Amino acid sequence: MSNSNLNPRGLSIGGKDIWVVDDHQYVLLVWGTLFQTQKQPMVLVSIDYHPDTNPPFWLWAYQKAMAIDPEREAELVEKFQKRMMASLVPLNLNSVRMTMDQMRNDEHINTAMELGYLRDYHMINCMEKHAYSRGSHYLVPESQFGRLEDVMFKSIELPLEKIGSEELILDIDLDYFLHPENFELDLDQNSIFADLVKQAQIITVARSKTYFDFLRTDEFTIDSCEEKLIELLGKIIRK
């Protein structure tokens, strides 16, 4: 499961598979592989600076529609989106891989819902508390940006009892983290993130370098951020 951009590349820690992608939409290939194995849709918990829940192929369809006939934009966008979705076969990952160039890195979650890879999602982010017909969004207060302590999860009222009974995928975008100190998590005092890590069937990590570099607030490199997250995940998994 790879391509020239190393999307995705995997490692295993204590029997837990962790997949890292450069561009967030490539997690679809990982989630699709899990769907092939599990034969059932999963529930996603995603931690991200942005709410990556735009409709499938929206930007590609919008740009194409505007180039053809701006007055028919809404009609054409829907037509082009449906055409792209019709080309995807949930159990044929090559059909998904072939559309990656038309998919933005904030359209993968609802694409996964449409394909049946996911049946629900919990989107923890720092920008919007959307209210859509499917899935749930949780807005992190500014004082908690980048943090993984229990106080953050409690501040957004994440329904831990409900999530605790689900088959989970944990998804993390590195652009959520602003400082190296975000990974200095006292696991004796903070258990919610650790519980999510242990419960997850797999963990996907998006590097999102462009957004990471834009949002970072100090001398914090993408490679250092990835390394610190993997170290924290390993510490939790092996504990």
Rank of each mutant, 00 (worst) to 15 (best):
R134N: 11
W19R: 06
I192W: 05
E128F: 11
N110M: 13
P70N: 09
Y138V: 10
L196V: 03
I172G: 02
R104V: 01
Y26M: 04
D175C: 03
L232H: 09
L11C: 11
K162P: 00
D175Q: 04
L59T: 11
F212I: 10
K39Q: 15
A74W: 07
E219A: 05
E166H: 02
Q201H: 12
R207H: 00
D69M: 03
P141K: 12
L29A: 02
V77D: 01
L170C: 05
D22S: 13
E142Q: 14
E107T: 00
V21Q: 02
D213M: 02
T37S: 14
Y62A: 08
A194M: 02
E161P: 00
D17E: 15
I192F: 04
A200N: 11
V45G: 00
I222M: 10
V77L: 03
R238L: 15
Q102T: 03
E149R: 15
P51T: 02
Y132T: 14
I237W: 04
L158W: 11
W19F: 14
S87D: 11
Y49T: 10
L6W: 09
I169S: 00
M152D: 02
I13E: 06
V205H: 03
D218A: 11
A112E: 02
D150W: 01
K154D: 14
D23T: 15
H108E: 15
L91F: 11
S224N: 15
A67W: 04
I47G: 03
L34I: 10
M100C: 01
R104N: 08
N110K: 13
V89K: 08
L29P: 07
E71T: 12
D171S: 12
I237S: 04
P70Q: 12
H24E: 06
A112C: 08
S143T: 15
A67G: 15
D106Y: 04
F80D: 05
V30S: 05
T33Q: 12
D52Y: 01
F80V: 07
R147Q: 14
K228F: 05
R72W: 01
L44Q: 04
M42S: 09
R104W: 00
Q63E: 14
D173F: 00
L233E: 06
Q189E: 15
T37G: 01
E107C: 00
R238V: 13
G116L: 04
F193G: 01
V30G: 00
M1H: 13
I156C: 06
P90H: 05
N3F: 01
K79D: 07
L158D: 09
I236L: 07
F193H: 06
I13N: 06
E78K: 15
M84L: 15
D223R: 09
Y49S: 11
P8A: 07
D175F: 01
H24R: 12
R83P: 01
S46Q: 12
G116Y: 06
S136H: 15
T33H: 09
K239G: 08
N190I: 03
F183I: 12
I156D: 12
K82M: 11
S136N: 15
W31P: 01
D188C: 02
K16W: 05
M1F: 08
S2H: 09
M100T: 06
K228H: 08
S4C: 05
